[in-house]
Design a protein around this nucleic acid. Structure first.
Lengths: 348, 348
DNA sequence: TTGTAAGCGTTATCAT
DNA sequence: ATGATAACGCTTACAA
């Protein structure tokens, strides 16, 4: 006996009222007390639960937000998710999570999916800002917030990190502690943060009147192996090993630590190491890792808040003239250096 | 000019065909080639995208699966999510993620939400199996899979870990390497795995003819601080420090390592340490942590597969007599010991 | 092959 | 305050 879920019609009949009254009861509209009681008791008895799909069809809202990232297993994106979830929940939204594997085609697919109106809004943290992606974003009918750095004319709300300043903080810290031969292990240059980091590294060194030395720069993937390989290579520098390694993220830094340990260098005495993103791993590694916090968590939270704002602003009657679509919002979250043992002998 | 999204009606008019034909084209049903072309070109021109909500209302499917856990930031649940996502994606489902904060009331709320039919199925990994939760699960109209250990008569598909065997593996490993005074830092006893671990610990010691010593057992939360405190307490044992510490999860083990290091014990020479769950942290800590892998990732994958099976079995016509509702499926994933430096001096 | 029309379960606009 | 009734955008008999 597959009980066909009761609908307002079922309840209306059972309670001897019209479907309109049932609807009113469940929407908290004005009804006589007696009616409300009849409806509620019938609903209770028959186990009625409102159908959110039907409601969505009428109201044109799904109470869902999509969150799309390259890999939800990545601690950086996870940190965003952790902050986004409670904010949206408080706003009455469910969260649909997409892990796109960094494939721009699949990211665009997610955007097209949004056109199907299964979600009321989108938070996306694209790994690469391709033209197709930006076009798809622009064509979106629902509000979206980008966590990342789209070009200013992209016309989309965004929350960005400041990896330039992050690099600067890290380098200043190293220079201040007397390091002068600083190696740099970066991730792919064709990503937005990768490019920024590279430029910032060179700028800051120039400011400090230190010559750029290509043999002190290694480019690879954002993985632990890159850190190991990069460190191995940079340590072989003809003028001797560098006295510090700046790494594009914590995973790379951990790989570098592996190599340093294997090759008998002391950290931080012989070589100081700095990571980026300040993930959980930084506090756990040995020695604990100095890392630049780029504010993933805060960026997630801000993005969610901005999206909720946009969602609230949209009246139920799309015909109504909108308050002149408050122009694109762009927020930058300040980086913060978290000093731990890998650069400062003092804490264990 | 808020362009009201085009619907099949718009397209039908533009293409000079009926809405049925438009629908057929988008569902890959038989239509004359000329018709298909007309429809597709109109759709392309007007930027038509099918409305998934309307489709859901008719078809009674949402193509969404809900995944509910206590805290999506917990590496164990994250490992599940990472495996679940691609499986469901391949099956054509989106993933709605709920982080309930471990509040049974909120878990039940998620289940009630399911009644609203915003998802076709559910994977849930409850931290505590309360009666209310089990009742809510039983009352569910959609298929659900529990990652955890509901009672056999709960009548719900489940994928369970075997923490008993996990504890056994860890203890055997320690005993085999000559440790005899083994401390145990456990999490809350009123959770299912917590209880199992406690019982298993005592059983295995009894099997090995070792007396249980309450002063070698510490119970706390599943947090790093518990590990530090627990280790601190157990090290003060009147007969001297234990020669091994078994910890209920990796986080606790990291806390224990902190204390051991602070108090000058060598790991593993003086005290061996074993964690559980084999999270990313285990490979990163120093020394790297021997840990019992309870198969979170595999459990996630299996749960998703089972759910997809159930979903496939359900005919579009609920009236049709079902194949006798293949009785409840219960799968147990075997634990696996991952030996690292914290118990075996040999690897670095 | 195609079109007409009847729902799917709501919400919202009318009268009453 | 309540009840008919018309949407919402789609799928699907049933007819043609």
């Amino acid at each position: 006996m597959a009980k066909p879920s009761p609908t307002i019609t079922t309840i209306a009949e059972a309670a001897g009222v019209s479907i309109a009254s049932v609807s009113r009861v469940f929407n908290g509209l004005a009804v006589r007390d007696a009616t409300r009681r009849k409806v509620l008791s019938a609903a209770e008895r028959l186990g009625y639960v409102p159908n959110s799909v039907a409601r969505s069809l009428k109201s044109n809202r799904t109470d869902q937000i999509a969150f799309a990232v390259e890999d939800i297993g990545n601690p950086v994106y996870l940190a965003m998710l952790r902050e986004i979830q409670p904010v949206l929940r408080a706003g009455g939204y469910r969260l649909v999570v997409h892990s796109t594997g960094g494939d721009p085609a699949e990211e665009i697919e997610v955007l097209r999916g949004l056109g199907r109106r299964y979600a009321d809004g989108l938070i996306i943290s694209p790994i690469r800002m391709t033209g197709g992606l930006l076009a798809a974003l622009r064509g979106l009918s629902s509000p979206a917030v980008v966590i990342g750095s789209p070009p200013a004319d992209a016309g989309v709300d965004n929350v960005r990190a400041d990896s330039r300043t992050g690099i600067r903080l890290a380098l200043r810290h190293l220079l201040d502690s007397g390091r002068t031969r600083i190696g740099f292990v970066n991730g792919p240059l064709d990503t937005v943060p990768g490019g920024y980091r590279d430029a910032a590294f060179r700028d800051v060194l120039a400011d400090a009147r230190l010559a750029a030395d290509e043999r002190l720069v290694h480019v690879g993937e954002c993985r632990r192996e890159t850190g190991s390989e990069g460190a191995r290579r940079l340590l072989r520098h003809p003028d001797g090993a560098p006295d510090a390694l700046l790494c594009a993220n914590d995973l790379i830094a951990l790989g570098a630590l592996d190599t340093l340990r294997a090759e008998g260098y002391r950290v931080p005495e012989d070589v100081a190491v700095v990571g980026m993103d300040d993930t959980d791993l930084a506090a756990v590694s040995w020695p604990t890792l100095t890392s630049v916090c780029l504010g993933s968590a805060e960026r997630g939270r801000r993005a969610a808040e901005i999206l909720l704002d946009r969602l609230e602003d949209r009246p139920d009657h799309p015909e109504t003239t909108q308050p002149p679509a408050a122009s694109t919002r762009s927020v930058t979250v300040e980086p913060r250096l978290v000093v731990r043992a890998s650069t400062s002998g003092s804490d264990r």
